[in-house]
Design a protein around this nucleic acid. Structure first.
Lengths: 113, 113
DNA sequence: CCTATGTGCAACCACTTGATTGCATGCTAC
DNA sequence: GTAGCATGCAATCAAGTGGTTGCACATAGG
């Protein structure tokens, strides 16, 4: 399978795209590309492309309703990315804890001749 | 100020770069670009460029020691990105909670003629 | 001093990407 | 049916990006 986590990060690594995502987060009923385009400084087609990137990375889902297509934030779309970040933070914390315990059991070693 | 969060996501939105970051996470003593390059499938200069991107986004710090430069993961480098993701997840949860409370106070409405 | 190793810089290349414009298609409502 | 709005598709373009190679510079160690 393709690397989902990288795709999610890449999708959020663009200001316009993250703006769209935030916009959708605030709209439980979803929004159409056209509606998003009027608020954004770029064309509708640019928005559509961004929405496709967001959809491909699993951050957003599209639902057709008659002649319009509404986009919604997907549930748990950011879960994998989020847990990856958490894993990294935990690794860091473990390292700090280890250093601190070493310092406790062997105090003031730094500077002894 | 420049948008830090977007930079962090963009930096992690590349497989090679995230691999380097993971490599550094496992090395408390840091690693040089040359050392990282032997394990990676790309050239040293490519690694250096990636490290510069990671450094510019605040995920990594460089420390010169004699003739070599060691790279370390920065503490709390992912904090802003992480909290942004958390904020989004909370917004989602609030929406779900609201829907559920509505469903509770007005049960089985869906389907009534 | 001289050599080996690690780093820095610059040019260069192919490919991707964010964005645009123009036009075709599809659905709704009158 | 047909006018109007929303979407889809394609070509196009400039800028960015990941990657390479080649060479210059700096430093540690005999």
């Amino acid at each position: 399978m393709k690397d989902t986590i990288t795709d999610v990060f890449a999708a959020l690594g663009d200001a316009t795209r993250r703006g769209i995502y935030e916009q959708l987060l605030g709209n439980p009923d979803g929004q159409t590309a056209t509606a998003l385009a009027v608020a954004a400084p770029v064309s509708r087609q640019a928005i559509v492309k961004h929405l496709q990137v967001l959809a491909r990375s699993g951050l957003v889902v599209a639902r057709r309703d008659g002649r319009e297509v509404r986009y919604f934030v997907a549930p748990n779309g950011t879960a994998s990315a989020s847990s990856w970040l958490l894993k990294g933070a935990e690794a860091w914390d473990r390292r700090v804890a280890k250093l601190e315990s070493q310092a406790r059991s062997n105090p003031r070693r730094r500077g002894t001749p």
